[in-house]
Design a protein around this nucleic acid. Structure first.
Length: 512
RNA sequence: GGUCGAUUCGUCUAGGGGUUAGGACGCAUCCCUUUCACGGAUGAAACACGGGUUCGAUUCCCGUAUCGACUACCA
């Protein structure tokens, strides 16, 4: 049977979307596009206690920013909605009941205290993993142990209950993961997971299977943390009688912290000074802001390219891929199996590549926008000139302003080390002459004239230009390194240049 | 502890019974250059360990170690 490919990204709105989640969304998106299928987004908000306001909007905005918006979602529904599990609440109970009727699930009335007592008893008896399973359920309060009329009475009296799946005692459960191959688990290691909670909401396991089935999902691409529960999911498909349309599973390797081991967390990112969230996230309870890649200056295409290569590669040596090229090259077979450590340097490198590929005009607009925030107005043509000398040395668009500031604002400080080493009488002499030549120079300064004038000034003093070059730079820019000086002079213009030389000549003391 | 999974340069990875084990980021050196950066060139740097199978294993098999995920009425 050849069904239309349908995949889904199913985040919980419990906070900002983590970068691992973004990668999962990206792979789902790529897979859908590659296979001419559809990419859905479903909000898994069955845990009302963990709901965080704004989280859903954040997810939407992040995917929009990256250009990987879903084809169907709560805010753009298709025909299989609703796309929020909380809104699907009424439909789950019948499926749970169906399982009870088929003998694959049962009611359980145990209180959390009783469950705790059971675990303690088991632990004391040195049972390796205390869990509600085929053995222990015989000692608990459920519809398998209680007389039928008592179960009925409890149900009718409104006593809280959950519905648990009845895991068989001895059965080999196998699934063929697209990334990992055959994974086999014995049912004796599984427990009778809760399917319906006492608040009437389904747990992830139930809702997930029911929704994926109802939404026609063909491939489940999700994080490796779900691998241990995948056998349960396989069992559920079987119990519902949906095995023939069961989606194929692909469990993605985890994103690890850069040093040591373990899953990448916000804490680690903070420690290293880089984000783990696509965009800034303001925690609604603490009011703290967690930084995002977008606000740090990462370009969406660069970020996507970087993300795609965290656990996947095209099999050749190409590394720069547009979204379209990623779609074309993508395949689940080429997703790796092992966890991936996060290296922010690579992300920066990607950003530099994409930044340099941008047109001067586009970058000039970035610069103009930054300048506006600083209350500085310049001509677009001037912004373009600045971009031309700065783009090869910028990692983020904001560097254009931060690193190129000296082209718009006179330096208010001068590098002490360079001053001590290079600011001498030779420099003073050349700069004095240069200033006079500039004042006498008719017309606009360009890099060539700026240079010939400076060369002439050096020659007049019988001094090799190379010897005073750094001092010249220091006088005008305040620092000892930067882009081509003559281009900078040309951008500055004659008047500003003379002004700065004047200031330096009069205020910088010669250290002997 | 149990279950499942993973293991190639510091990092992301290619590869796969016989290879000088390839590329990229980062790092170092050199070239270019008035400086820095870009660019170019070069270099250091890896098959976790132990058994087996084999003429031959980094590659296949089995163990061990290490790391990770999971082990909730959270997803």
């Amino acid at each position: 049977m050849n069904r239309e490919v349908r995949v889904r990204f199913a985040p919980s709105p419990t906070g900002a979307l983590h970068i691992g989640g973004v990668r999962t969304a990206l792979y789902n998106y790529l897979f859908a596009r590659k296979n001419k299928g559809r990419f859905l987004l479903r909000i898994e908000d069955t845990d009302q206690t963990r709901f965080v306001p704004g989280a859903e909007e954040y997810i939407k905005e992040a995917l929009d920013w990256l250009g990987i918006a879903p084809d169907e979602s709560p805010w753009n529904p298709g025909s299989v909605g609703p796309y929020r599990q909380s809104e699907r609440k009424p439909m789950y109970m019948q499926y749970a009941m169906d399982l009870v009727e088929k003998g694959h699930a049962y009611y359980a009335f145990d209180t959390s205290e009783e469950l705790e007592a059971m675990r303690q008893r088991l632990t004391a008896a040195r049972v390796v993993s205390p869990q509600y399973n085929s053995i222990t359920r015989t000692q608990m309060k459920n519809s398998l142990t209680l007389p039928e009329d008592e179960v009925k009475a409890r149900l009718e009296s409104g006593e809280p209950y959950v519905i648990r799946v009845k895991i068989p005692r001895k059965e080999e459960v196998r699934l063929n993961d697209l990334i990992r191959g055959w994974v086999m688990v014995h049912s004796s290691t599984l427990d009778d997971k809760v399917l319906m909670k006492s608040d009437g909401m389904p747990t992830y396991h139930l809702a997930n299977i029911v929704d994926d089935h109802l939404m026609g999902i063909t491939h489940v691409i999700r994080g490796e943390e779900w691998l241990p529960s995948a056998p349960l999911h396989v069992l559920l498909y079987r119990y519902f009688g949906w095995e023939d349309t069961m989606p194929q599973f692909a469990h993605l390797p985890l994103l690890l912290k850069p040093d040591g081991n373990g899953k990448l967390s916000k804490r680690d990112a903070d420690k290293h000074g880089f984000p783990v969230f696509p965009m800034d996230w303001i925690d609604p309870t603490s009011g703290d802001t967690a930084m995002g890649f977008r606000e740090q200056g990462y370009l969406p295409d660069a970020f996507l390219n970087f993300l795609a290569f965290l656990g996947w590669n095209p099999g050749d040596h190409r590394e720069l891929f547009s979204l379209e090229e990623l779609i074309d090259a993508f395949s689940v077979e080429r997703i790796g199996k092992s966890g991936t450590k996060f290296d922010i340097n690579k992300a920066k490198w990607y950003n530099e590549q994409y930044l340099r590929a941008k047109s001067d005009e586009e970058l000039a607009q970035y610069l103009m926008d930054d300048l506006q925030l600083e209350g500085i107005q310049i001509e677009f043509s001037k912004a373009t000139q600045i971009v031309q000398v700065m783009k090869e040395r910028a990692t983020f668009p904001s560097d254009l302003w931060k690193e190129g500031k000296f082209m718009l604002v006179a330096p208010d400080s001068f590098d002490e080390a360079v001053l001590a080493k290079r600011w001498n009488n030779d420099a003073l002499a050349v700069l004095g002459t240069y200033k006079e030549k500039l004042v006498d120079f008719p017309g606009e300064l360009n890099p060539e004239s700026a240079k010939s004038l400076l060369e002439a000034a050096a020659e007049d003093n019988g001094i090799k230009l190379g010897k005073v070059m750094q001092a010249v730079r220091l006088a005008v820019t305040g620092v000892g390194a930067g882009p081509d000086l003559m281009a900078v002079f040309s951008i500055l213009g004659k008047d500003e240049l003379v002004k700065r030389l004047d200031y330096a000549l009069n205020n910088l003391k010669v250290n002997i």
